[in-house]
Design a protein around this nucleic acid. Structure first.
Length: 301
DNA sequence: TCTACGCCTTACCT
DNA sequence: AAGGTAAGGCGTA
Protein backbone atom coordinates (compact mmCIF):
# COMPACT_ATOMS: atom_id res chain seq x y z
CA UNK A 1 0.00 0.00 0.00
CA UNK A 2 1.10 3.48 -0.80
CA UNK A 3 -0.50 4.99 2.27
CA UNK A 4 1.30 7.38 4.54
CA UNK A 5 0.78 8.58 8.07
CA UNK A 6 -1.30 11.73 7.80
CA UNK A 7 -1.17 14.72 10.06
CA UNK A 8 -4.45 14.59 12.01
CA UNK A 9 -6.01 16.96 14.50
CA UNK A 10 -9.00 16.58 16.83
CA UNK A 11 -11.53 18.27 14.59
CA UNK A 12 -11.90 15.35 12.19
CA UNK A 13 -9.44 16.74 9.70
CA UNK A 14 -6.08 15.56 8.44
CA UNK A 15 -3.53 16.82 5.95
CA UNK A 16 -2.50 14.55 3.11
CA UNK A 17 0.81 15.54 1.64
CA UNK A 18 0.93 15.47 -2.13
CA UNK A 19 4.08 14.88 -4.15
CA UNK A 20 4.28 17.30 -7.11
CA UNK A 21 1.00 18.89 -6.06
CA UNK A 22 -1.37 20.56 -6.18
CA UNK A 23 -3.91 18.09 -7.50
CA UNK A 24 -6.69 19.40 -9.73
CA UNK A 25 -9.58 17.73 -7.94
CA UNK A 26 -12.18 18.56 -10.57
CA UNK A 27 -10.09 17.08 -13.36
CA UNK A 28 -8.92 14.10 -11.36
CA UNK A 29 -11.91 13.06 -9.24
CA UNK A 30 -14.70 14.27 -11.51
CA UNK A 31 -13.10 14.10 -14.93
CA UNK A 32 -14.30 10.77 -16.24
CA UNK A 33 -12.07 8.36 -14.30
CA UNK A 34 -14.27 7.92 -11.25
CA UNK A 35 -18.01 8.40 -11.00
CA UNK A 36 -18.89 9.01 -7.36
CA UNK A 37 -17.37 12.39 -6.48
CA UNK A 38 -19.47 15.49 -6.19
CA UNK A 39 -18.50 19.17 -5.74
CA UNK A 40 -18.90 20.26 -2.11
CA UNK A 41 -18.09 23.85 -1.41
CA UNK A 42 -18.86 23.68 2.30
CA UNK A 43 -15.13 23.94 2.90
CA UNK A 44 -14.52 26.69 0.35
CA UNK A 45 -14.02 26.36 -3.34
CA UNK A 46 -12.81 23.24 -5.05
CA UNK A 47 -13.74 20.59 -2.50
CA UNK A 48 -15.22 17.21 -3.35
CA UNK A 49 -17.31 14.81 -1.30
CA UNK A 50 -17.43 11.10 -1.83
CA UNK A 51 -17.13 7.61 -0.42
CA UNK A 52 -13.98 5.48 -0.51
CA UNK A 53 -14.74 1.91 0.50
CA UNK A 54 -16.77 2.50 3.70
CA UNK A 55 -15.52 6.00 4.52
CA UNK A 56 -17.28 9.28 3.76
CA UNK A 57 -14.84 12.12 3.16
CA UNK A 58 -14.53 15.66 1.97
CA UNK A 59 -11.30 16.46 0.15
CA UNK A 60 -10.22 20.09 0.00
CA UNK A 61 -7.24 21.73 -1.67
CA UNK A 62 -4.72 23.31 0.70
CA UNK A 63 -1.70 24.74 -1.04
CA UNK A 64 0.12 21.85 -2.66
CA UNK A 65 -1.55 19.39 -0.29
CA UNK A 66 -5.02 18.20 0.62
CA UNK A 67 -7.15 18.49 3.72
CA UNK A 68 -9.37 15.50 4.40
CA UNK A 69 -12.45 15.80 6.57
CA UNK A 70 -14.10 12.66 7.89
CA UNK A 71 -17.87 13.08 7.56
CA UNK A 72 -18.80 9.76 9.10
CA UNK A 73 -17.70 10.13 12.72
CA UNK A 74 -14.89 7.59 12.39
CA UNK A 75 -11.12 8.14 12.75
CA UNK A 76 -9.92 10.69 10.24
CA UNK A 77 -6.39 9.34 9.96
CA UNK A 78 -7.61 6.11 8.40
CA UNK A 79 -9.83 8.02 5.99
CA UNK A 80 -6.88 10.22 5.06
CA UNK A 81 -4.83 7.14 4.34
CA UNK A 82 -7.51 5.93 1.95
CA UNK A 83 -7.59 9.32 0.26
CA UNK A 84 -3.81 9.38 -0.08
CA UNK A 85 -3.93 5.99 -1.77
CA UNK A 86 -6.95 6.85 -3.93
CA UNK A 87 -5.43 9.99 -5.42
CA UNK A 88 -1.92 8.54 -5.76
CA UNK A 89 -0.61 11.33 -3.54
CA UNK A 90 2.87 9.85 -3.30
CA UNK A 91 3.30 9.39 -7.05
CA UNK A 92 5.64 11.74 -8.86
CA UNK A 93 4.72 13.36 -12.16
CA UNK A 94 8.20 14.72 -12.78
CA UNK A 95 9.34 12.05 -15.20
CA UNK A 96 6.21 12.35 -17.34
CA UNK A 97 6.47 16.14 -17.46
CA UNK A 98 10.16 15.91 -18.32
CA UNK A 99 9.61 13.52 -21.21
CA UNK A 100 6.39 14.91 -22.65
CA UNK A 101 6.13 18.49 -21.37
CA UNK A 102 7.32 19.72 -24.77
CA UNK A 103 5.81 17.03 -26.93
CA UNK A 104 3.34 18.79 -29.27
CA UNK A 105 0.51 16.26 -28.94
CA UNK A 106 0.08 16.36 -25.16
CA UNK A 107 2.03 19.41 -23.92
CA UNK A 108 -1.00 21.66 -24.36
CA UNK A 109 -3.08 19.48 -22.07
CA UNK A 110 -0.23 19.24 -19.55
CA UNK A 111 -0.01 23.05 -19.48
CA UNK A 112 -3.77 23.57 -19.26
CA UNK A 113 -4.39 20.89 -16.63
CA UNK A 114 -1.16 20.59 -14.61
CA UNK A 115 -2.95 18.98 -11.67
CA UNK A 116 -4.56 16.11 -13.55
CA UNK A 117 -3.53 12.73 -12.15
CA UNK A 118 -4.32 9.08 -12.43
CA UNK A 119 -6.45 7.66 -9.64
CA UNK A 120 -5.92 4.34 -7.93
CA UNK A 121 -9.49 3.15 -7.44
CA UNK A 122 -11.05 0.17 -5.80
CA UNK A 123 -10.89 -2.47 -8.57
CA UNK A 124 -14.42 -3.81 -8.11
CA UNK A 125 -16.10 -0.40 -8.15
CA UNK A 126 -13.98 0.60 -11.12
CA UNK A 127 -14.86 -2.53 -13.07
CA UNK A 128 -18.54 -2.24 -12.22
CA UNK A 129 -18.74 1.38 -13.32
CA UNK A 130 -16.94 0.79 -16.60
CA UNK A 131 -19.16 -2.19 -17.29
CA UNK A 132 -21.92 0.42 -17.40
CA UNK A 133 -19.99 2.78 -19.67
CA UNK A 134 -20.50 1.51 -23.22
CA UNK A 135 -22.47 3.91 -25.46
CA UNK A 136 -23.29 5.88 -22.33
CA UNK A 137 -22.09 9.23 -21.01
CA UNK A 138 -20.09 10.24 -17.96
CA UNK A 139 -23.17 11.94 -16.57
CA UNK A 140 -25.29 8.84 -16.94
CA UNK A 141 -22.61 6.48 -15.62
CA UNK A 142 -22.56 8.66 -12.50
CA UNK A 143 -26.31 8.27 -12.17
CA UNK A 144 -26.02 4.49 -12.62
CA UNK A 145 -23.30 4.30 -9.95
CA UNK A 146 -25.37 6.39 -7.56
CA UNK A 147 -28.45 4.25 -8.13
CA UNK A 148 -26.43 1.10 -7.47
CA UNK A 149 -25.01 2.54 -4.25
CA UNK A 150 -28.25 3.91 -2.85
CA UNK A 151 -30.24 0.82 -3.74
CA UNK A 152 -27.79 -1.98 -3.00
CA UNK A 153 -25.11 -0.42 -0.80
CA UNK A 154 -24.87 0.19 2.95
CA UNK A 155 -25.47 3.67 4.30
CA UNK A 156 -22.19 4.80 5.83
CA UNK A 157 -22.69 8.49 6.53
CA UNK A 158 -25.23 11.17 7.44
CA UNK A 159 -25.72 12.58 3.95
CA UNK A 160 -28.39 11.59 1.46
CA UNK A 161 -25.86 10.03 -0.88
CA UNK A 162 -23.47 8.56 1.68
CA UNK A 163 -23.70 4.96 0.56
CA UNK A 164 -20.94 2.45 0.13
CA UNK A 165 -20.57 1.10 -3.39
CA UNK A 166 -22.31 -2.28 -3.20
CA UNK A 167 -20.14 -5.38 -2.83
CA UNK A 168 -19.93 -7.89 -5.63
CA UNK A 169 -22.03 -10.16 -3.43
CA UNK A 170 -24.75 -7.54 -3.11
CA UNK A 171 -24.81 -6.94 -6.86
CA UNK A 172 -24.80 -10.66 -7.57
CA UNK A 173 -27.68 -11.18 -5.14
CA UNK A 174 -29.67 -8.44 -6.87
CA UNK A 175 -29.43 -10.22 -10.21
CA UNK A 176 -29.82 -9.07 -13.78
CA UNK A 177 -33.49 -8.13 -13.67
CA UNK A 178 -33.14 -5.85 -10.66
CA UNK A 179 -30.17 -4.20 -12.35
CA UNK A 180 -32.34 -3.64 -15.41
CA UNK A 181 -34.94 -2.08 -13.14
CA UNK A 182 -32.20 0.35 -12.10
CA UNK A 183 -32.01 1.43 -15.76
CA UNK A 184 -28.65 -0.17 -16.45
CA UNK A 185 -30.00 -1.42 -19.77
CA UNK A 186 -28.00 -4.06 -21.60
CA UNK A 187 -25.10 -3.52 -19.20
CA UNK A 188 -27.06 -5.39 -16.53
CA UNK A 189 -26.16 -8.81 -17.86
CA UNK A 190 -22.38 -8.35 -17.87
CA UNK A 191 -22.43 -6.64 -14.50
CA UNK A 192 -24.49 -9.41 -12.91
CA UNK A 193 -22.17 -12.08 -14.32
CA UNK A 194 -19.00 -10.29 -13.23
CA UNK A 195 -20.45 -9.75 -9.78
CA UNK A 196 -21.26 -13.45 -9.46
CA UNK A 197 -17.71 -14.43 -10.43
CA UNK A 198 -16.11 -12.01 -7.99
CA UNK A 199 -18.52 -12.92 -5.19
CA UNK A 200 -17.83 -16.62 -5.67
CA UNK A 201 -14.09 -16.01 -5.43
CA UNK A 202 -13.56 -17.19 -9.01
CA UNK A 203 -12.07 -13.82 -9.90
CA UNK A 204 -9.78 -11.99 -7.46
CA UNK A 205 -9.48 -8.49 -8.89
CA UNK A 206 -6.95 -7.21 -6.36
CA UNK A 207 -4.61 -10.05 -7.20
CA UNK A 208 -4.42 -8.71 -10.75
CA UNK A 209 -2.36 -5.85 -9.36
CA UNK A 210 0.62 -8.15 -8.96
CA UNK A 211 0.25 -9.76 -12.41
CA UNK A 212 1.94 -8.54 -15.57
CA UNK A 213 -0.12 -6.29 -17.82
CA UNK A 214 -0.85 -8.95 -20.44
CA UNK A 215 -1.83 -11.57 -17.88
CA UNK A 216 -4.12 -9.21 -16.01
CA UNK A 217 -5.73 -8.00 -19.22
CA UNK A 218 -6.32 -11.58 -20.37
CA UNK A 219 -8.27 -12.26 -17.17
CA UNK A 220 -10.45 -9.16 -17.59
CA UNK A 221 -11.16 -9.95 -21.25
CA UNK A 222 -12.75 -13.23 -20.19
CA UNK A 223 -15.63 -11.24 -18.72
CA UNK A 224 -18.77 -10.74 -20.78
CA UNK A 225 -19.11 -7.10 -21.73
CA UNK A 226 -15.41 -6.36 -21.25
CA UNK A 227 -13.41 -5.62 -24.39
CA UNK A 228 -10.12 -3.81 -24.93
CA UNK A 229 -11.34 -0.40 -23.85
CA UNK A 230 -13.06 -1.31 -20.60
CA UNK A 231 -10.26 -3.70 -19.64
CA UNK A 232 -7.73 -0.94 -20.24
CA UNK A 233 -9.66 1.54 -18.11
CA UNK A 234 -9.76 -0.88 -15.18
CA UNK A 235 -6.07 -1.69 -15.63
CA UNK A 236 -5.10 1.98 -15.79
CA UNK A 237 -7.35 3.41 -13.07
CA UNK A 238 -7.33 0.65 -10.48
CA UNK A 239 -4.77 -2.06 -11.18
CA UNK A 240 -1.42 -0.25 -11.31
CA UNK A 241 -0.79 -0.76 -15.03
CA UNK A 242 0.64 2.55 -16.34
CA UNK A 243 1.50 1.03 -19.71
CA UNK A 244 -2.14 0.70 -20.79
CA UNK A 245 -3.63 3.16 -23.27
CA UNK A 246 -7.41 3.37 -22.87
CA UNK A 247 -8.72 4.19 -26.35
CA UNK A 248 -12.25 5.52 -26.54
CA UNK A 249 -14.03 7.84 -28.94
CA UNK A 250 -12.51 10.98 -27.34
CA UNK A 251 -8.94 9.68 -27.25
CA UNK A 252 -9.30 8.37 -30.81
CA UNK A 253 -10.46 11.80 -31.92
CA UNK A 254 -7.63 13.51 -30.03
CA UNK A 255 -5.00 11.20 -31.49
CA UNK A 256 -6.23 11.68 -35.04
CA UNK A 257 -6.34 15.43 -34.54
CA UNK A 258 -2.94 15.87 -32.92
CA UNK A 259 -0.75 13.24 -34.54
CA UNK A 260 0.00 12.08 -38.05
CA UNK A 261 -1.19 8.53 -38.51
CA UNK A 262 -2.05 6.41 -41.54
CA UNK A 263 -5.50 7.46 -42.72
CA UNK A 264 -7.13 4.05 -42.46
CA UNK A 265 -5.50 2.64 -39.30
CA UNK A 266 -7.57 0.64 -36.82
CA UNK A 267 -7.62 0.69 -33.02
CA UNK A 268 -5.03 -2.07 -32.75
CA UNK A 269 -2.61 0.05 -34.74
CA UNK A 270 -3.22 3.08 -32.52
CA UNK A 271 -2.68 1.03 -29.35
CA UNK A 272 0.60 -0.29 -30.65
CA UNK A 273 1.64 3.19 -31.78
CA UNK A 274 0.80 4.55 -28.32
CA UNK A 275 2.68 1.77 -26.55
CA UNK A 276 5.82 2.58 -28.50
CA UNK A 277 5.45 6.31 -28.09
CA UNK A 278 4.39 6.57 -24.46
CA UNK A 279 5.59 3.32 -22.90
CA UNK A 280 4.97 3.34 -19.16
CA UNK A 281 3.38 6.78 -19.51
CA UNK A 282 0.59 5.50 -21.76
CA UNK A 283 -2.13 5.62 -19.14
CA UNK A 284 -1.43 9.17 -18.02
CA UNK A 285 -0.96 10.32 -21.62
CA UNK A 286 -4.28 8.80 -22.59
CA UNK A 287 -5.96 10.57 -19.70
CA UNK A 288 -4.54 13.96 -20.68
CA UNK A 289 -5.67 13.41 -24.27
CA UNK A 290 -9.08 12.27 -23.06
CA UNK A 291 -9.67 15.03 -20.55
CA UNK A 292 -8.78 17.91 -22.84
CA UNK A 293 -10.96 16.53 -25.62
CA UNK A 294 -13.84 15.69 -23.30
CA UNK A 295 -14.03 18.89 -21.22
CA UNK A 296 -13.82 21.04 -24.31
CA UNK A 297 -16.20 18.73 -26.19
CA UNK A 298 -13.63 18.49 -28.97
CA UNK A 299 -13.34 22.22 -29.57
CA UNK A 300 -9.82 22.60 -28.17
CA UNK A 301 -6.83 23.06 -30.39
C1' DT B 1 -8.19 -13.76 -40.35
C1' DC B 2 -10.03 -9.19 -41.58
C1' DT B 3 -13.65 -5.71 -42.02
C1' DA B 4 -18.30 -3.82 -41.94
C1' DC B 5 -22.46 -3.41 -39.82
C1' DG B 6 -26.61 -4.19 -36.84
C1' DC B 7 -27.98 -4.54 -32.42
C1' DC B 8 -28.25 -3.73 -27.51
C1' DT B 9 -30.79 0.27 -23.05
C1' DT B 10 -31.79 4.73 -21.94
C1' DA B 11 -31.27 9.68 -21.16
C1' DC B 12 -29.68 13.74 -22.73
C1' DC B 13 -28.53 16.76 -26.29
C1' DT B 14 -29.80 19.72 -30.23
C1' DA C 1 -39.67 17.54 -31.25
C1' DA C 2 -37.52 13.76 -33.55
C1' DG C 3 -33.27 11.99 -34.16
C1' DG C 4 -28.49 11.47 -33.03
C1' DT C 5 -25.19 10.41 -29.59
C1' DA C 6 -23.02 8.87 -25.43
C1' DA C 7 -15.24 6.63 -21.91
C1' DG C 8 -18.28 -0.28 -26.39
C1' DG C 9 -18.87 -5.08 -27.08
C1' DC C 10 -20.46 -8.91 -29.66
C1' DG C 11 -22.39 -11.67 -33.23
C1' DT C 12 -22.96 -12.28 -38.08
C1' DA C 13 -22.19 -11.67 -43.17
Amino acid sequence: MKTQTPNADRSGRAVVEVVDGPIDLAATLDGGQAFRWWPDDAEGQGSYRGVILDRVVRISPSGNDLVVTALDDKPVDQAAGLVSDHVNASATLAAFRRKFGSEPGVCGAILDYPGLRLLRQDPWECLACYLCSSTSSVKRIKQNAEDLAVTLGRKVGPGKGDFEFPSAQAVADAGEQKLRDLKLGFHAKGLAKAAALVAAGDLDLSSLRTLAYDEAKRELLKLEGVGDKIADCVLAFSLDKPQTFPLDTWVRQAVRKRYTLPDRCDDAFIREWAREKFGDFSAIASQFLFYREWVTRGTAG
